[in-house]
Nucleic acid binder design. Structure first.
Lengths: 190, 190
DNA sequence: CAGGTTATGGACTGATCAGTCCATAACGAG
DNA sequence: CTCGTTATGGACTGATCAGTCCATAACCTG
């Protein structure tokens, strides 16, 4: 056969996610990526195509991981309100770790609606997050925690919007306590 | 004396705000700025120093204008809830106008806490917005609209976070109706 | 009208960008 | 051990970047 890769593809993408999350797409140079991923230039192009395709793969994987974290939080057994609060706050990146950022929010802010493939990834991810929130809201209504008149899907969209705001606040330096208090206050409406 | 400028400085900055809001700081080239502002290269450097100082001036002016818009909405005579909802939604950029963006959120996402001067501008702007929200919340408590136990300052921070989320949603393509519904739902907690 | 001053536009610069080329290295199959 | 195949690293390319230089144009004061 042939010479095998010297790097682990999953680890390399995880590193690329960090680089893109820190700098954004445009401002992350291929040299940043090579250094951050610990691979050679030709390996990057051979394994991932080009910077854009690497970014799309990183965005897809980031969204998958983020949804998994939130789903796990939402699956918690306690009251719906507490599970939703936990899902809102999971993986935000504390003030200890100022280098992290959200690839989803970052790509929306950077590209707006200008890139069809980014749109498709973000739209799909948003639909899944909204659905996950909506399902837990529905549970809460059934359990008598929330008002019966509440529209679960609309509540889900509000919670996604709120989470975007929390991510911006976290990236802007807000501490864990401020974020939690903001989440709690907004959740009082459910 | 000397030859006078052929362009209006305020209009040029307003144009620069549009260019930076659309592309972000890094991705806005000096050629984009020159074209968007309708001035020559040397005029840009002569009048504004360099790209970075132009950006800082644009960010300052954008924040001033944004605060003015929100203050005007908050000063509306009706119920506090309606004024706050209006302030949350003002100037978000509808789906008709997909080119606009928020320089404040954009700079937080792009720079995180990495640029001290950007930090200072954004921190000052955030404090003013939070204070404006908090004052109107206080009014609402006094008028019996909101729960007396509500902490106005914490509510103000939540509203700023919510507004950031709404801006991300707007940039991601959300329509005016979705944005309003999300704002209303989150406001039910006050 | 003349002279000092500032604005303007176009050519230019060194640096950096994403992406390619190519010689070489490392592997499995025979 | 040898050969075909794939991975790797370093040099390289044309394009674009932010910012500068300079000759010229336009204005106000005297």
């Amino acid at each position: 056969m042939a010479r095998p890769s010297e790097f682990d593809r999953d680890e390399a993408i995880a590193s690329a996610i960090r680089v893109f999350a820190r700098h954004g797409y445009e401002a992350a140079s291929t040299s940043d990526l090579i250094e951050g991923m610990g691979i050679g230039r030709q390996s990057l192009y051979g394994a991932f195509g080009d910077k854009r395709r690497l970014f799309l793969e990183a965005l897809r994987r980031y969204s998958d991981g983020s949804l998994a974290q939130m789903s796990e939080a939402l699956a918690g057994g306690g009251p719906a309100r507490e599970a939703i609060e936990a899902a809102l706050l999971v993986g935000l990146g504390s003030s200890d770790d100022l280098e992290t950022g959200c690839l989803g929010v970052g790509s929306i802010v950077e590209f707006s609606r200008g890139d069809p493939e980014v749109n498709a990834l973000n739209d799909a991810a948003a639909a899944l997050v909204v659905a996950a929130f909506a399902a837990r809201v529905q549970d809460g209504i059934a359990a008598g925690e929330f008002a019966p008149a509440l529209d679960p899907h609309a509540a889900g969209r509000m919670l996604l919007t709120l989470r975007s705001g929390l991510k911006v606040a976290a990236r802007g330096g807000a501490g864990q306590d401020e974020l939690r208090e903001a989440a709690r206050l907004a959740l009082r409406g459910l």
